[in-house]
Amino acid sequence: MTAGLLALMLVLGQSPPDGHGHGTDDAHGDAAIDSAEFGSDRHLHPPGEENHGTEWFFSQPWATPERWRFMARDSVVLASAAAGILMLSGLRRRK
């Protein structure tokens, strides 16, 4: 809903929050990409870097290795748990 909030703020005449300061240490290589359709500059984090807590700019969470890891790990654990539950409940029923 970030975009929805942005629309509301712009309609109400408020300026968007600007809490995303960049020091010299954490320069992200921001890219302001012109877009004919979108009309405004965009702020992009490089792939794999998380957002710094601001609502305004979005991160690219799919690129973080942590996310890929937990998705793969949880999928395996849950599929095994599902198979285990089915087997146990089937065994109990037979008894």
């Binding site: 949880d74 999928s75 849950l78 599929a79 748990a81 599902a82 198979a83 539950i85 089915l86 146990l88």
Partner: peptide, 14 residues
């Protein structure tokens, strides 16, 4: 998503 779905379904079946 499918893994979570199968987990919830296995609970429902149990």
């Amino acid at each position: 998503g499918l893994a979570y779905t199968s987990f919830m379904l296995s609970l429902a079946i149990a």
